[in-house]
Deep mutational scan, measured.
Amino acid sequence: ENVVSAPMPGKVLRVLVRVGDRVRVGQGLLVLEAMKMENEIPSPRDGVVKRILVKEGEIDDTGQPLIELG
């Protein structure tokens, strides 16, 4: 899985990584606010952040691509 998608609709509060960062499975990639709760979205695998497809403050839909890993 190279693309991390939104598991729920919500607002992107914080992006915790930058392009080029090495990430490990379970590491937080970004924080979504949904139903007044903050949810940290973890990396599904080890890899390198290739692209960040959303910006802080954006509203996303379920299934929307958020981050691409390489």
Rank of each mutant, 00 (worst) to 15 (best):
S5G: 09
V15R: 00
V48N: 04
P42T: 14
V49W: 00
E58M: 12
I67Y: 02
Q64L: 08
V31Q: 02
T62I: 14
P65L: 07
L32M: 14
V12Q: 00
G10A: 06
I52N: 00
V17Q: 01
R18P: 01
G57P: 04
V31C: 05
R18E: 10
G47K: 00
D61L: 13
G63C: 11
P42L: 14
G70S: 13
L16D: 02
Q27C: 05
K50R: 11
V31P: 00
G47A: 09
L13A: 05
K11Q: 06
D21N: 04
V15P: 02
E1T: 14
G28T: 15
L69N: 02
R14M: 07
L29Q: 00
V31D: 00
K50T: 13
D46K: 06
V19D: 03
R45P: 01
V17P: 00
V17F: 00
I52P: 02
P44R: 04
M37N: 09
G63E: 07
V31S: 02
L16C: 11
E40S: 09
N2E: 11
E38K: 10
M37D: 07
G20L: 04
P9W: 10
D61G: 11
S43N: 02
G20Y: 05
L53H: 09
V49F: 00
K50G: 05
V54F: 08
L29G: 00
L29E: 00
E40F: 12
I67G: 01
L69A: 01
A6H: 03
K36M: 14
P65M: 08
G57R: 04
L13P: 00
S5C: 15
D21W: 08
R24A: 09
D46S: 09
V25Y: 11
D21H: 05
L16E: 02
V19N: 04
L30D: 00
P44E: 04
S43M: 02
M37V: 13
L30W: 02
I59V: 12
M37A: 10
V15N: 00
V4T: 03
G47V: 02
Q27L: 04
G57V: 05
G63F: 07
R45K: 11
L66I: 07
I59W: 15
R24V: 13
R51D: 06
G63I: 05
L69S: 01
R14H: 07
G57S: 06
P44Y: 03
K36I: 06
G28W: 08
G47W: 04
T62W: 11
V54L: 06
P7Q: 07
G28E: 03
M8G: 10
N2V: 14
M35P: 04
N2K: 09
G10M: 05
S5D: 06
G70Q: 13
G57Q: 07
E40Y: 12
Q27D: 09
R51C: 12
S5A: 12
P65R: 06
E68V: 15
G26S: 03
G26A: 04
G20E: 04
V48R: 07
I59P: 06
R51F: 09
E58D: 14
G47R: 02
P42G: 10
G20D: 04
L30M: 09
D61A: 13
I52C: 04
E56S: 09
E33P: 00
G10D: 01
G26N: 06
R45E: 05
E1A: 13
G63L: 07
E40M: 14
E40K: 09
Q64P: 03
P9T: 11
P9N: 09
V4I: 12
D60Q: 15
D60C: 15
P9V: 09
L13Y: 04
V31K: 03
K36W: 11
E38H: 10
M37K: 12
R22L: 12
E68I: 15
G70I: 13
M35W: 12
Q64N: 08
I59T: 10
E33W: 15
S43T: 04
Q64R: 11
P7C: 09
G70R: 12
I41W: 03
E68P: 03
P9H: 11
M8K: 07
G28D: 02
G57Y: 05
P65E: 06
R45V: 14
T62Y: 13
K36P: 04
V12E: 00
L30T: 01
L30A: 04
L32Q: 05
R14Y: 07
L16M: 09
R18C: 11
I59Q: 10
L66T: 02
K55W: 13
L66G: 01
P42D: 05
E38T: 10
L13Q: 05
L29I: 07
Q27T: 07
R22N: 10
S5K: 14
K50Y: 12
V15M: 08
A6M: 08
V25L: 12
P65I: 11
E56H: 09
R18D: 08
K50M: 13
P44K: 05
Q64F: 10
L13F: 03
S43G: 02
E1P: 12
V15L: 13
G63H: 08
M37T: 12
V17E: 01
L13K: 10
Q27P: 00
V3Y: 14
M35I: 07
V49G: 01
S43A: 11
V31A: 02
G20T: 04
G57E: 06
E68C: 11
R24H: 12
S5H: 14
V19H: 04
D60E: 15
K50F: 11
K11G: 02
Q64T: 14
K36V: 06
V48F: 13
R24C: 12
E38Q: 11
G10C: 11
D60A: 15
Q27A: 04
G70P: 02
V49S: 01
R45F: 13
R14N: 05
V31T: 05
P44H: 09
A34C: 14
S5Y: 15
V3W: 14
V48E: 07
K11C: 08
V25H: 10
R14A: 07
P42N: 10
L16W: 01
G26M: 04
N39F: 15
P42Q: 13
A34L: 11
D60N: 15
D61R: 14
G28R: 07
R22S: 12
P7I: 07
P65C: 07
I59E: 10
N2Y: 15
K11N: 05
I52V: 10
N39T: 14
D21Y: 06
G26Q: 03
R14Q: 07
G20H: 06
K11S: 04
S43K: 01
V49A: 01
G47Y: 03
E56F: 09
L13N: 04
R45A: 10
D46I: 05
R18K: 14
I67E: 00
N2C: 15
A6Q: 04
V4Q: 03
M8N: 08
G47Q: 01
G26W: 05
G28N: 08
R51W: 09
V31F: 03
V48Y: 14
K50V: 14
V4G: 02
V4A: 04
S5N: 11
S43C: 09
I52F: 02
L53D: 04
Q64M: 12
S43H: 01
E68F: 10
E68K: 05
G26E: 02
R45C: 13
V31I: 13
Q64D: 13
L16P: 03
V23P: 00
E58R: 10
I41V: 10
N2S: 13
V25D: 05
A6K: 04
V49R: 01
R22K: 12
L32V: 10
V54Q: 03
A34Y: 15
E58Q: 12
G20A: 04
L13D: 02
A34K: 06
R51M: 10
V25K: 15
G63S: 08
K55P: 07
P7R: 07
